[in-house]
Design a protein around this nucleic acid. Structure first.
Length: 926
RNA sequence: GCCGCGAUGGUGGAAUCGGUAGACACGAAGGACUUAAAAUCCUUUGGCCCGAAACGGCUGUGUGGGUUCAAGUCCCACUCGCGGUACCA
């Protein structure tokens, strides 16, 4: 009988659905295991063959865990809000809701064909009001919280208010935007609005004027992780710096916990390193520098406290608040000119053009250790957002300060013995100090510690830890996102009552900003809040007393994806994000699979969000994902034909050097094993209708290259086509066979035949099954396979299992014993579930293979009677000796030494050493 | 610049604890079946050398050194490629 995979797969997919085979319950006596894929954004292009790679891997692991007796949660959903649907809406007028729904339907159809064991009853969509209700709810909780540095956790803002009432800011150690100073008395005298403004300085979700990445092309603000080298990650549009009133999340408050948390999760070192760099902890000191002839000082941050004796000038960031106070009258115009120039420069220009620029303020500071007067400059190489926006410059030991000093002809004082600073600075943190008063003779590390002590003792500064991690800007001037549960009264934001959630996204017809420059939500008619009746009303009714305007921005993409893993645990709950019971049962994600491109975005925000909910007592784990695996990207493999320039003739790859040719991308779907189907090519596009070919060996061979998988390269391979042609099981097996899961690799359909042939052969084994007892040899093959496949799955080494299956099939080619074949079916069930069902049923089982039990290795079957020992002389293998398996080490040695082969190689000499590695090898050193 | 990862036949890759490198698959070559093709099956396939033949010799995992009885694997230095990040004081 033929292996009719299409029929088989359709049959089982239908059956699984009818029997609700993959529905998971929250109450089970079994141990739990939670496997999660990063949910996709449903793009209009549909899935290409690269997308399911991680899904297949997680599906294999889920099925394996299930067969091992775990209650496995393996859900799927959609990150449905996002820019592309909105951009599409602007171009076509199609409402994003419609296109998104259409795309999701398509995705589910495509995923369904691959045979995943998702529990679709737990599906979530970020754009579903029942879902984003909890995104809005979490935002309100953050608004109503502050972060206490002493207890290292988020606490209710009410506690902070009561502190203010009793003590003002005295004895307060909390995360804040800026250091405010007021007493309890002053707090009580503040107006309601003033108090609200003060609280904004502490809330975990806060509204503030912030320097933001503004992308004019997208008409929208972007977070730091959404910008790379001055361009937007999505679309590659230029980004500029702007100050705008924005919502932000105080992620920076959690910097230390986000850093420490990395120690207890099983993620790859590379992704942990990326997060460590992004958090950017640096230990140093803050120091006060007095300004000469003025009653004013300013603070700098440094990690090189040891170099204060070499400070020969100071530099302020152009945006520094001290600039205006420091500039002398005669320098005013010059400074203003410079500041304007800096403002005009785009972020991209600044990065591309690193020439030294700056301007002298006319003022001097006093070096607190040498008491020298040192000039204060302004330059854009100092960033306002890091540290205090001001630095002490040590040209001898910092390359940036060095370049600046050379340019402005400022003194350079070397501080480390033997360091030659005539050509460049000496940046390394090592060596012995000199020219440094009481630090002379100390090692750099000792000097740093010594100077910190001095700074603290004399009160000119304090020890300080700085983080690079910034607060996340949370407003987007966009339509297709979660609405903020916020309305404005007296120009201050207020939260919509939690009982009134969700605040549903209103309908609009125009997705562009309003003529007055407001975000697209400004086009919504029903977008005002009736504070008395607690409902959304027409915005024409706004009277700023009881009918109030609602926030017009929406939340960013990462809002909905930050806590979705919790919602799967209990997705129909309308009373809570997740019930206590559901969360206690599922705890956290045990295995999370997804791309490493989310290292500084989603994977940071999710950890932050989780820690916050943990602080609130909503959930029981303070890390969301216990183990993370990053599957590699699948790149495209493009094919080329070579047109002879100026003709409609195409020359085969091997002959192209004889002509002047132009390579042209050709659709990979009309090429097989790099051989072009010339007839299909002629019909592919009108321009090739009359194409002529110069063949080699009767074939047209195409060239190839690895490129990104994209429409314009004609190298997109659609999983539906592969399923149609080879079946889902072949696709699943082949994607795993392609190489190690975590490595990036090009999709190359060459070779899929081999895997398909294997499944065909496997299928043919399941005819005429007998209930005879298997032989020892057959049991050995089977148990070798059990051992190998078990090890592979446990170690996520799925690619190496497939050869093992192939070898075992070859060894068992003539075995038709039920006992062997049905265990084989269970072993391959995670990889090729449809065929496994057929095999399982072929063995006479009534249940589905999903209900089977994972076979256990019986070591006794693995024992061989004899063992081959390769005998090496000085590392080279000379012959192989077969001895009894259980022969002890010294017996092996004796047997080897007394063999005639050994005598031949020894030629009467005594060996220096004989080494027997148990069960492996004999090494004779002459 | 800094951080991380990688480099093995014509190709994808295997070698899991330092123990016979090249498993498995693709491709290629030759053969069987067939009027023919497809499908299927069999043989060969890192390179070089000797030979009538061998279960013969040499060489071989980016480069150069080292440790070891033994190195693709460990150590040092370097080259190239990929990914991330960048005036972070």
């Amino acid at each position: 009988m033929d292996y009719n995979f299409n029929q088989i797969e359709k049959f089982w997919q239908k059956k699984w659905e009818e029997e609700k085979l993959y529905k998971t319950n929250n109450d089970s006596q079994k141990p739990k295991y939670y496997v999660l894929d990063m949910f996709p954004y449903p793009s209009g292009a549909g899935l290409h063959v690269g997308h399911p790679l991680g899904y297949i891997a997680s599906d294999i692991y889920s099925r394996y865990k299930h067969l091992n007796g775990f209650n496995v949660l393996h859900p799927m959903g959609f990150d449905a809000y996002g820019l592309p649907a909105e951009q599409y809406a602007i171009q076509t007028g199609q409402h994003p809701e419609i296109t998104t729904d259409k795309n999701i339907t398509r995705y589910k159809e495509q995923l369904g064909k691959i045979g995943f064991c998702y529990d679709w009853s737990r599906e979530v969509r970020t754009s579903d009001p029942a879902y984003y209700k909890w995104t809005q709810w979490a935002f309100i909780q953050m608004f109503n919280s502050y972060y206490c540095n002493r207890s290292q956790k988020a606490l209710p803002i009410a506690q902070l208010i009561s502190h203010f009432e009793n003590h003002g800011i005295e004895d307060l150690d909390v995360a804040q935007t800026e250091q405010l100073v007021f007493s309890a008395q002053q707090w009580k005298q503040m107006s309601e609005k003033e108090q609200q403004q003060v609280l904004m300085n502490y809330r975990l979700a806060y509204l503030a004027d912030t320097k933001v990445n503004w992308c004019p092309a997208l008409g929208c603000v972007l977070a730091n992780d959404e910008v790379s080298e001055g361009l937007s990650v999505r679309g590659g549009h230029p980004v500029e710096q702007r100050v705008m009133r924005q919502w932000s999340l105080r992620v920076s408050a959690y910097a230390q916990r986000l850093l420490e948390g990395l120690e207890k999760i099983d993620w790859s070192e590379s992704i942990k390193d990326t997060q460590r760099n992004w958090i950017g902890r640096s230990e140093g000191a803050e120091m006060q520098f007095q300004i000469a002839d003025k009653d004013l000082s300013f603070t700098i941050f440094t990690t090189r406290a040891d170099t204060v004796f070499g400070v020969t000038f100071m530099v302020l960031a152009p945006e520094s608040e001290y600039v205006s106070e420091v500039v002398t009258d005669d320098k005013k115009s010059e400074v203003e000119e410079y500041l304007n120039w800096v403002k005009r420069r785009t972020e991209r220009e600044r990065i591309a053009d690193r020439k030294v620029t700056g301007v002298f303020t006319g003022s001097y500071a006093i070096n607190p250790l040498t008491n020298n007067k040192i000039p204060i400059y302004i330059s854009d190489y100092v960033l306002s957002g890091y540290g205090t926006g001001a630095i002490m410059a040590v040209p001898a030991h910092d390359s940036r300060d060095y370049a600046f000093a050379k340019h402005f002809n400022l003194p350079i004082i070397p501080l480390i013995e033997g360091a030659d600073v005539s050509e460049q600075s000496f940046d390394a943190k090592e060596g012995v100090m000199m020219n440094s008063g009481f630090l002379n003779g100390l090692q750099v590390k000792e000097a740093i510690a010594e100077m910190k002590k001095y700074i603290v003792k004399t009160g000119i500064g304090k020890v300080k830890v700085n983080y690079r991690l910034r607060d996340a800007i949370f407003s987007r001037q966009r339509y297709w996102g979660e609405p903020f549960p916020v309305y404005y009264k007296n120009d201050m934001p207020y939260m919509i009552p939690v009982e009134c959630l969700p605040l549903e996204l209103p309908h609009v017809d125009n997705f562009l900003p309003t003529p007055t420059g407001e975000p697209p939500l400004g086009n919504a008619q029903l977008w005002a809040w009736d504070e008395v009746n607690r409902k959304v009303v027409d915005k024409n009714l706004i009277d700023n007393k009881t009918i109030l305007p609602i926030e017009l921005c929406t939340m960013p993409g990462f809002a909905g994806s930050s806590a979705y893993y919790l919602r799967y645990m209990d997705n129909h709950n309308n009373e809570a994000l997740v019930s206590k019971e559901a969360n206690d049962y599922w705890q956290q994600v045990d295995l999370y699979l997804g791309g490493s491109e989310h290292a500084t975005g989603h994977l940071i925000y999710s950890r932050f969000w989780d820690k916050f909910l943990f602080d609130m007592g909503v959930i029981c784990k303070d890390e969301p994902f216990a183990k993370l695996i990053n599957q590699g990207m699948i790149q495209g493999r493009s094919n080329f034909v070579y047109r002879i320039v100026g003709t409609n003739k195409y020359v085969s790859y091997g002959l192209k050097d004889q002509y002047k040719v132009q390579p042209i991308h050709v659709d990979v779907n009309i090429v097989s094993n790099d051989v072009l189907d010339t007839e299909k090519f002629k019909n592919w596009l009108p321009e090739y209708k009359n194409a002529e070919f110069i063949l080699e060996d009767g074939k047209y061979i195409c060239g190839w290259a690895v490129e990104k998988m994209s429409k314009s390269m004609y190298n997109v391979v659609n999983p539906d086509d592969v399923v149609e042609k080879y079946g889902a099981d072949t696709l699943r097996l082949y994607e795993m066979f392609l190489g190690p899961l975590e490595m990036s690799k090009p999709w190359d359909t060459n070779g899929i035949d081999g895997v398909h042939r294997f499944l065909k052969k496997l299928w043919n084994m399941y005819e005429n099954i007998s209930s005879e007892q298997p032989t020892a040899e057959e049991l050995r093959s089977l148990h070798k396979l059990i051992k190998k496949v078990t090890w592979d799955i446990e170690h996520f080494s799925f690619n190496t299992s497939i050869p093992a299956f192939m070898i075992a099939r070859d060894e068992l080619a003539n075995c038709n014993k039920k006992e062997v074949l049905q265990q084989f079916a269970v072993l391959i069930a995670p990889y090729a579930p449809h065929l496994a069902e057929e095999m399982w049923h072929g063995c006479g089982n009534e249940t589905t293979v999903f209900a089977a039990e994972w076979p256990k290795v019986n070591e006794a079957y693995l024992v061989e009677n004899t063992q081959k020992y390769p005998v090496q002389f000085n590392g080279k293998v000379r012959f192989t000796l077969e001895v009894a398996k259980d022969m002890p080490k010294d017996e092996v040695e004796k047997t080897v030494m007394s063999s005639p082969e050994t005598a031949k190689y020894l030629q009467g000499n005594q060996p220096k050493r004989v080494i027997v590695v148990p069960g492996r090898i004999v090494n004779i050193v002459m």
